[in-house]
């Protein structure tokens, strides 16, 4: 009986210490995250939060979330990420949207007619697979797999991404920079909405407590 008690005491002692240090770690990460968000919330700009803890992407301003996109799946490659805001340098895709060019003198052409054709870029024109580049971090967005065609497309995208990622990694290593790659699967329309909302220099926080 005293032996059993001794074992239980040892287990409680160690598990208690582990739980305490885990909670401390989480709270510390959360504090850094909140401090970073506070900096962004003070500015009159839209920003994104990539929250891998709650698996969602938030479009925010002044601390208020205006849009929430659910992360279906994700993967990390490279060193652990510091919780820090970063500005979007570039968004790139194989088939990006093309802006329509207005021909001078064509304004109002048949705007009320049945065969009126809109010369605009809309959300449906946005790619569902693309990359968002930050300093040393690349986020690869792809749609979640639904059906055979989507599976084939995503297999092709995965192969393409693996090659691209390797090239990026080599390029960064050659320059002595660190490189982190993140893959995120979203619903197709959410991937398109994110591409639409992401503009150059928009700030993001990547929050992934260990």
């Amino acid at each position: 009986m005293p032996l059993k008690l001794l074992f239980i005491f040892i287990i409680i002692l160690f598990s208690g210490a582990d739980a305490l240090s885990d909670e401390l770690k989480t709270l510390k990460a959360e504090r850094v995250f909140l401090e970073e968000e506070l900096k962004l919330a003070k500015e009159p700009h839209i920003y994104f939060i990539f929250d891998f803890k709650d698996k969602k992407i938030l479009v925010k301003a002044r601390g208020k979330a205006f849009k929430e996109l659910s992360i279906k799946d994700f993967g990390f490659w490279g060193k652990p990420i510091d919780v820090k805001s970063a500005a979007l340098i570039k968004k790139s895709s194989l088939f990006g949207p093309k802006r329509a060019k207005i021909k001078p003198g064509s304004a109002g052409d048949n705007v009320n007619g049945e065969d009126f054709q809109l010369d605009a870029i809309e959300i449906a024109d946005m790619p569902e697979s693309y990359s968002l580049s930050f300093n040393g971090i690349i986020i690869h967005i792809k749609p979640e797999t639904e059906g055979v065609i989507s599976l084939l497309k995503n297999t092709y995208r995965s192969v393409e991404w693996h090659i691209t990622r390797l090239l990026y990694a080599l390029w960064n290593v050659a320059q002595g920079k660190q490189f982190i790659a993140i893959t995120i699967s979203l619903k197709e329309e959410d991937a398109q909405a994110l591409y639409w909302a992401a503009y150059e220099k928009i700030n993001v926080i990547i929050y992934k407590p260990d």
């Binding site: 401390l24 909140l34 506070l38 919330a41 003070k42 002044r62 601390g63």
Partner: peptide
């Protein structure tokens, strides 16, 4: 830390 995080959340909410 808990108190500090609560406080930070409050400040962010105050900006909203």
């Amino acid at each position: 830390l808990k108190a500090k995080n609560r406080n930070l959340r409050g400040i962010i909410e105050g900006i909203s």
